[in-house]
């Protein structure tokens, strides 16, 4: 951090470049490819479909089952395939965040499966994953109260900044990923680690919400683009 400019040249309240594309997979009911800084994420949605085995079914509503997975070559040192404790936790909080906006009561005994594959990672993968999953859910036509969106803020060298890079995450003082329902700005997910004063926390939440609003616009554009380019043969 030097003269209010960060190591990658961004201002404190600036996002990394983001690219979102909806409907990129053939087999999935809905899908999204997202690049966010150095993150590359593929998300897909299957369902609503019958939940199997039967004993996991809920007779009153659908289950939302998100699976966050990092591929072995997505990180510096090869990660062994399969879920570790970190990805199990992220899968759980992601499922809960998405369930918050889905009209699950419309699909009793069903499951809505959300697959999030991190192909290349550079800090902020859970926010990128939720953002991609939301677009994939909309692409799959899942009825939702709102289109969830996620973004992180943090603290580096005593300054509150938006959307940390991996160096800032490692060297920084705090990281605060949040997901919101942008229409009402209700919080769907919030995690934090590090050290912030209550005043810094307030500032960080406000900044993260501002980031979410920007990303939300890109999500909507991506969904509209899919249908803009659709031509009848």
């Amino acid at each position: 951090m030097k003269d209010g400019i960060r190591i990658d040249g961004r201002k404190p309240d600036e996002l990394r470049p983001i690219k979102i594309e909806a409907g990129v997979l053939y087999r999935a009911d809905g899908s999204c490819y997202l690049e966010w800084g150095g993150n590359k994420i593929m998300a897909a949605v299957y369902g609503p479909r019958e939940a199997m085995p039967r004993h996991i079914q809920d007779p009153t509503k659908a289950i939302v089952n998100a699976r966050y997975n990092m591929v072995p070559f997505s990180v510096e040192d090869r990660k062994r395939p399969g879920p570790d404790r970190r990805s199990v936790e992220i899968s759980k909080v992601t499922s809960e965040a998405l369930e918050g906006v889905i009209f699950t009561e419309l699909f009793p005994r069903a499951t809505i499966d959300v697959c999030i594959e991190v192909l290349d990672a550079e800090a902020g993968t859970r926010c990128a994953g939720i953002t991609a999953a939301a677009v994939a859910l909309a692409d799959a036509g899942i009825p939702m109260r709102d289109l969830p969106v996620a973004c992180a803020a943090g603290k580096v060298d005593g300054t509150v900044v938006l959307d940390l890079t991996s160096d800032e995450d490692k060297e920084g003082d705090a990281d605060l990923p949040i997901a919101i329902a942008p229409r009402t700005e209700e919080i769907l997910l919030m995690q934090m680690d590090g050290h912030m004063t209550p005043a810094e926390f307030d500032e960080a939440v406000e900044l993260a919400i501002k980031g979410c609003r920007e990303v939300s616009k890109l999500q909507r554009e991506a969904l509209m683009n899919k249908y803009k380019t659709f031509e009848v043969e």
Partner: peptide, 21 residues
Amino acid sequence: ILRNAEGSARVRIGNTMVMAG
């Protein structure tokens, strides 16, 4: 196409898509 992999490729044959790292 990936930063963290020592080498990577995405191959499509029709609708089939595979990523190798």
